[in-house]
Simulated assay, not measured.
Amino acid sequence: MPIYEYQCEACGHQMEALQRMSDAPLTSCPSCEQPQLRKKISAAGFRLKGSGWYETDFKAGNKKNLAGDTAKPAAKSEASSGSATETG
């Protein structure tokens, strides 16, 4: 569900609301209770909810941390290049 930003034109109160995309925009300000609440134009945030949103859910085999796996070969290549300069 998207998180929308609102601002009251009467008192300037700002807030966020978790709403369905099909829900009508809020109009009543919770601070001053005036019908001057307007939805701000912004990138809507969203909440990842339920299973399937974790790093380990999309990895194959034993690779559970791909960032850590890519760092290991780089360390090996540095060690081999470092030893080559010592012998050469």
Rank of each mutant, 00 (worst) to 15 (best):
C8V: 01
F58L: 12
S51N: 05
S81M: 07
P35W: 06
P2D: 07
A17H: 12
R20L: 02
F46W: 12
S77W: 01
L26M: 15
T70A: 11
Q36F: 12
P35D: 11
K59Y: 05
Q36D: 15
A10Y: 05
Q14A: 13
L37V: 02
A79N: 10
A43P: 15
S28D: 14
A75F: 13
E55V: 05
N62L: 08
E5Y: 09
K63P: 02
K40N: 06
W53L: 08
M15S: 12
G45W: 02
F46L: 09
G12K: 01
A24Q: 09
S83K: 10
E9I: 06
N65Q: 10
C11R: 04
T87C: 03
K59V: 06
T87S: 13
Q36S: 15
D23L: 04
C32I: 08
S42A: 15
K63C: 04
S42K: 10
D69T: 13
E33Y: 05
L26Y: 07
R20H: 04
W53S: 11
G45Q: 12
Q19E: 08
K49A: 04
R20P: 00
P30R: 04
N65L: 04
R47N: 09
C8S: 01
I3P: 09
I41A: 13
S28Q: 09
S80M: 08
K76P: 01
M1H: 05
D57T: 07
R20T: 02
G82W: 06
A60K: 06
G88L: 00
S22A: 06
T27M: 14
K40S: 01
S80D: 09
G61H: 02
E5L: 10
A71S: 15
M15N: 01
E33K: 14
Y54G: 12
Q14W: 07
K40H: 02
A84V: 05
K59T: 10
E78A: 15
S22M: 03
A60D: 10
F46G: 15
G50I: 00
P35G: 11
K63F: 03
E16H: 01
L66M: 09
